[in-house]
């Protein structure tokens, strides 16, 4: 397990195989509705149980995809601290997450490196699961400082190759 020292996780603090501290969260109807409205997703299957059951054939309302992206971002930056800068995320939706579920985020480092611009990066495999079943998986790449005076957020143009 690695963790940021101070507010800055450095590339040198990380090795392939490191695991992020799991995040467990009990999902309620409020979680789902708040997440949908925060993402400006007004579709009824994210706030109307009757609609979700009768029209979508699901057992309840379920977390929408954009809000899951926000959960994954939070999970990654809890680990990196504010100097971690997301480069890319790929999501695969496998199943739905409902009120009453306890969702568990897990992640592991699958690669590290420094690109041709000198930007440090870490590749992560992340998942959110319920009762051991993965509901969404995410492969992510996040830039990390290579030294205490480095800041990936200062990169742009030709110096940012996400």
């Amino acid at each position: 397990m690695t963790a940021a020292t101070g507010d800055r996780l450095l590339l040198g603090d990380v090795a392939v195989g490191d695991e992020l501290a799991p995040l467990s969260y009990p999902v309620t109807a409020t979680t789902v509705v708040l997440g949908a409205l925060a993402a400006r997703d007004w579709r009824p299957m994210h706030h109307d149980k009757d609609f979700a059951v009768e029209r979508n054939g699901t057992r309840d309302i379920f977390l929408n995809t954009p809000n899951q992206a926000a959960w994954f971002e939070r999970f990654v930056t809890d680990w990196t601290g504010p100097y971690g800068r997301l480069q890319r995320m790929t999501f695969r939706m496998l199943g739905s997450i409902f009120p009453g579920d306890t969702m568990v985020f897990r992640g592991a480092v699958t690669g590290t490196g420094v690109d041709e611009t000198g930007c440090g990066w870490v590749a992560l495999d992340i998942s959110v699961s319920v009762d051991g079943d993965a509901k969404t998986t995410c492969s992510a790449r996040v830039a990390l400082p290579v030294a205490a005076d480095d800041n990936p957020w200062e990169r742009g143009g030709e110096r940012w190759k996400p």
């Binding site: 997440g35 925060a38 993402a39 809000n67 926000a70 939070r74 809890d78 504010p82």
Partner: peptide, 16 residues
């Protein structure tokens, strides 16, 4: 405002 609403929805305390 929407930034805060979204951070609140996932309890994201990133000081940024």
């Amino acid at each position: 405002g929407y930034v805060w609403t979204t951070c609140a929805s996932v309890e994201n305390g990133n000081p940024l």
